[in-house]
């Protein structure tokens, strides 16, 4: 188990390294002066030159990359106007936002986590519940309704569902406040009230895939020989499903859920935009638009970290579910 963990961690670090190098290179490959984006207003040649100096843009690429990574690992000195020393993990200074990128991330990460984590719990419960019900009642109207629901969900767009929900619950019925983010630690009720529509719309859309996936997987598993063995033993239906079929059908769901959650944590741009909540996704889009190199680097790296972590978690869960994986 330990060897498995070490191996996975090493490959995760390698992946992150590759992502950071690529992002770095990609930015400089853009046909645009990186500095222009960082000096949006009152741009005079002196200021441009100062930024260029502070970013070390005249140094060779390798040196620049080295400096950046050193900042991430050990912290580094920024210019006096940027608050002097920047503690590790230092992701640089955003001239657009006029703050240390680390501070930006610390501010927006809880927002995205607050959207994605409860939404993921909801969409998994809803999706697997629907899948289970329709597999158990295959061919009946229950099955048809559930599958119809998930087909509808899969064909809808988030901004549409979100807008409809907003119209109903906020602007017509007035049951919910206008969406927004409040820290969970400050006021849990307002936190939930401001985000619940985002959770619901994400859950509605994403659960559709899980319902169909889980249904198909369950039906396939029910045809497996070991399920027949379980029935041949004289086990009641509940045990055949609960102890034998469900556990075997859950592996692919873990895989897809891991990928989905990882990707969602990297930024739920459309959700954030629809509900006017400023999370990691909006931050990333804004940074790209403004050509804000340090923020782009940081958001891409954060997204990569989430995807890599989610993948590791999937592997661990797999090993927990399937004893055959533990050997490898």
């Amino acid at each position: 188990m330990l060897r498995f963990l070490v191996k996975r961690t090493l490959s995760a670090v390698l992946t992150l390294f590759a992502v950071s190098v690529l992002t770095f290179l990609m930015f400089f490959a853009l046909p645009r002066d990186p500095v222009s984006g960082m000096c949006p207003r009152n741009c005079n040649p002196e200021r441009l030159e100062r930024v260029r100096q502070e970013l070390g843009l005249s140094d060779p690429l390798v040196v620049q990359y080295g400096g950046y990574m050193r900042g991430v690992v050990a912290g580094r000195e920024l210019g006096a106007a940027q608050g002097g020393h920047c503690d590790a993990p230092c992701l640089g200074w955003s001239y657009v936002n006029n703050e240390a990128v680390t501070d930006t991330l610390v501010r927006v990460l809880p927002v995205t986590l607050s959207i994605v984590v409860p939404a993921a719990v909801l969409w998994l419960l809803l999706g697997m519940g629907l899948g289970l019900v329709s597999a158990l009642r295959r061919g009946t109207w229950v099955d048809r309704v559930a599958i119809g629901f998930s087909l509808t969900g899969a064909s809808l767009q988030l901004y549409f569902v979100g807008a409809v929900l907003l119209l109903i619950f906020v602007y017509t019925l007035g049951w919910l406040p206008v969406p927004g983010y409040t820290s969970l630690l400050d006021d849990p009720v307002r936190w939930a009230g401001g985000l619940v529509l985002a959770w619901l719309s994400l859950a509605l859309l994403c659960s559709a895939n899980y319902a169909r996936l889980f249904r198909a997987q369950l039906l396939e598993t029910l045809g497996e020989d070991f399920v027949r063995t379980a029935r041949a033993k004289g086990l009641p239906r509940s045990a055949v499903y609960g102890r034998h079929a469900l556990r075997a059908a859950i592996s692919p769901v873990i895989t897809v859920a891991g990928l989905d959650v990882g990707a969602a944590l990297g930024g739920t741009v459309i959700t954030e935009t629809t509900f006017g909540i400023h999370g990691l996704g909006r931050t990333a889009v804004d940074a790209v638009r403004a050509g804000d190199l340090p923020t782009i680097m940081a958001t891409v790296l954060a997204a990569a970290v989430f995807v890599v972590l989610a993948n590791m978690l999937v592997d661990l869960l797999y090993a927990a579910v399937d004893p055959r994986v533990r050997l490898g």
């Binding site: 497996e224 020989d225 070991f226 027949r228 063995t229 379980a230 029935r231 041949a232 033993k233 004289g234 086990l235 034998h244 556990r247 075997a248 579910v321 399937d322 004893p323 055959r324």
Partner: peptide
């Protein structure tokens, strides 16, 4: 089932629960 009549199947690998 299992008490008065029991059954064994062709492929014991797929007939046993892998987990």
């Amino acid at each position: 089932r299992g008490r008065n009549v029991a059954m064994i199947f062709q492929d014991p690998l797929s007939a046993l629960h892998p987990y």
